[in-house]
Amino acid sequence: MHLQTSTATPAVRFQGVERHFGHVRAVDGVDLAIAPGEFFAMLGPSGSGKTTCLRLIAGFEQPDAGHIEIFGETVEGLPPYRRAVNTVFQDYALFPHLSVGDNVAYGLKVRGVGRAERDRLAREALAMVKLAGTETRRPSQLSGGQRQRVALARALVVRPKVLLLDEPLGALDLKLREEMQSELKGLQRALGLTFVFVTHDQGEALSMADRVAVFNEGRIVQVGPPEEVYERPATRFVARFVGSANVLEAAQAASLGGAARPSSLRPEKIALLAHGAPAPEGVAVIEARVIDVSYQGPVRRVTAVTEPGLTLAAAVPASAAGVIAGATVRLAVPAAALVPMEGEG
C-alpha cells in the first residue's frame, strides 16, 4: 500500500473539474489527488464520467470549469502532445498501416529520434511486454492480447509520468484477463509509474488498484483503498455497485442490532443457523423464507424474505444443505456486519 501523504506533489490533481456535453454534465465537480507511483482505479457504470475524467487527464477533452494539474503543472488548455501522460486505448488504437515495430517507435519518431535508435528502443519495449520478435508483423496479425501488449509498449516507450488505461482488459477473455492483471501490476511496480485505469468491473478494480474512486453521475462518491470501499461503502450506490451488498433502511438496521442509520450488509457476512441452535453473542437471528437460490461454484446465493418483508441476499457455502426455494431458514446477522452509510447518492 502506498502512502498518500499530502506533502508530496500529486501525480494528478483535479479541483472542481467540470465537463459538460450540451446539457449533460458528464463530469460534475470532481476533486481528486492521485499520488505518484499509485495504481489508481476509476470505477463506475457507463456514463458515470470516469472515462471523461481519463480523457481530461490525457488532454482529449478540456474542462469547462475547474483546475487540473499533472505533477504540479497546470495542464488546462494544453493539447495531448504537450502532456507527459500516455494512454492505452480501449480498442488499442494501433496504427493499421504501420508494423508492430513502427507502432511502438511512433512516439520516438515524432520526437525526431533516429531510425537505429528508435528501432533499438522499440525492440526493448516489445521485449519488456514479452513480444520480442514481432517487430515486422502487422497489428492485424496479432491476437487481442498481443495487441494490448503492443499498445502498452507503445505508450511506455516514450516514458510517460502517468500511464492512462481505458478499460484495458475489457476486450480480453477471462483467462487472458487474469494473466494481464498480474502482469500490469508487476509492470507498474517495476517501473514505479503512476497508473490510472478506468473500469466498470469492480472485481478488476478491487484486485489491481491501490486506491479506487467510485463514480456515479459525474461525481466521485467514494475514494479509498479497495478494502475500505468494499467493507465500508459510503453510499447506497457504492454498496450496491461494488459487490452488490444488501441495503437496509435505518429502522431495519436497528431491528437487527445495528445503528439506526441506513446501513449496508454484505451477503457473505450472513450465515445460516441450524434450527434450534442458540444465537451467538452479538448476532441477530431471523427467520426467512427462501425465494431464490443460485449456485455460483464456491457459494450459493440465497435470496430470502423475512417476516417484516425485508429481502436479504446471503452468500452461503455451496455445501449448505436444505436450502431450496420455499424452505424456511434461520439467518444469522452479526451486528458488526451492519455498516452505517454516511454519504448520500
Binding site: Y81, L121, L191
Partner: peptide
C-alpha cells in the same frame, strides 16, 4: 525491466 537507457529528446518547436 527498465527503460532508463536513453534520454528522450524534446519535440522540435
Amino acid at each position: 525491466m527498465s527503460l532508463a537507457t536513453f534520454e528522450l529528446p524534446e519535440p522540435r518547436e
